[in-house]
Nucleic acid binder design. Sequence first.
DNA 1: CGGATTTTTGACCAATTGGAAAAACGTTAG
DNA 2: CTAACGTTTTTCCAATTGGTCAAAAATCCG
Lengths: 216, 216
Amino acid sequence: MAEAGPTVARQRPTTRIQREKRDRILEAALDVFSVHGFRGSTIDQIAESAGMSKPNLLYYFPRKEEIHKRLIAALLDMWLAPLREIDAEGDPIPEIRSYIRRKLEMARDFPRESRLFANEMLQGAPRTVDLLEGELKALVDEKAGVLLVWMEQGKIIRTDPYHLIFSIWATTQHYADFDVQVRAVLGKSRGGEGRFEDAARYLEQLFLYGLLPKRG
Amino acid sequence: MAEAGPTVARQRPTTRIQREKRDRILEAALDVFSVHGFRGSTIDQIAESAGMSKPNLLYYFPRKEEIHKRLIAALLDMWLAPLREIDAEGDPIPEIRSYIRRKLEMARDFPRESRLFANEMLQGAPRTVDLLEGELKALVDEKAGVLLVWMEQGKIIRTDPYHLIFSIWATTQHYADFDVQVRAVLGKSRGGEGRFEDAARYLEQLFLYGLLPKRG
DNA sequence: CGGATTTTTGACCAATTGGAAAAACGTTAG
DNA sequence: CTAACGTTTTTCCAATTGGTCAAAAATCCG
């Protein structure tokens, strides 16, 4: 009998308004969550920042956690893209250099995403642990393998590939997560937009040559 | 007339109970604030974690912000101690090495303090900005000067001393702030207690030699 | 011991929180 | 145009929040 027509409620297509509002909500939520964390953020805050009423917002995302989950999922994907791009067939040094550069650009261009992630980590990743142990670990394992090969080929120094990756994450994300501190320490004169280029230059030196002057 | 005796209420000395309870509260508050941030933490949570009732807690610290302020103040002092210890008269390489080591030990032994600080930074340091621009900046300026001298003496590579300090902060604190992620990625086999020694070895290599293999 | 002081409790409050329900309002395809 | 659907607002709710207050209980000291 079923073939005669749609008897069961079909997924209605999302309307223009739905797409627009959902986007506005996610934008606003990113602002709020990235600063105050999940528990510290309120639906009211997000709604106001998105320019709508709380019940109106809840019409699009029935609960607070839904919004947060969506943000985290989108974020992780984007966040790992640079790591995915590391090419085992490429030249080690340029590959690592451009990985660092891309990560630093992300810290500059998407600081809210970085902070959202940092907030989640600080809280023990209650809503993200599975992804970390699954998708993330798998990807890092793979790239750590690539690094190991490069080390065995003598292309880069023999060292711990996992901690190498951690140190790239740490140094680049620092400029998003600890932005206030960076600005405060650099002061008005050097805390301007130039700080990312300075950081890029410094990090390149550090990762390639370290701090010891060349001997001989 | 006033000399005859104490007519105005004197500061009574703090009792044993006061000292004990205040300590217990600060301990509990560190647990809670370091995970959930200021806004995400509740007095009830802290009180329960400290094993006392909310009104009882409020008897010792009349408001939530008071507790947080005390924690941040104590923390900053402790946090900057290793940087203070950098000795302009000392040998650059050992000085920097032991600074890295000390910072890493702090991330290992005081992860809650590190996370409390990170939380505050992520939120834009609303209760800490003054300290950052004052005390902290002054100290970093001083030590950046020391590093500059070392660079001019050819003892270490010529580079940006501020970003050098940032990179040490970032790489060491990462092991406290992103602990969940580090454990998840390293997995059960390598995520155990050994990870700090591995990190120490790796960071020493990185900061001294970089990733390029020695040529010639 | 006994009175003064310190500490703890229980009851309470106004504001805020996440969310539900339903009515009112818009939009749009037929 | 109008019925059906999508959207928004209004009203409401119970739980939680930071914090008060007076009374009760515990402690301290001579």
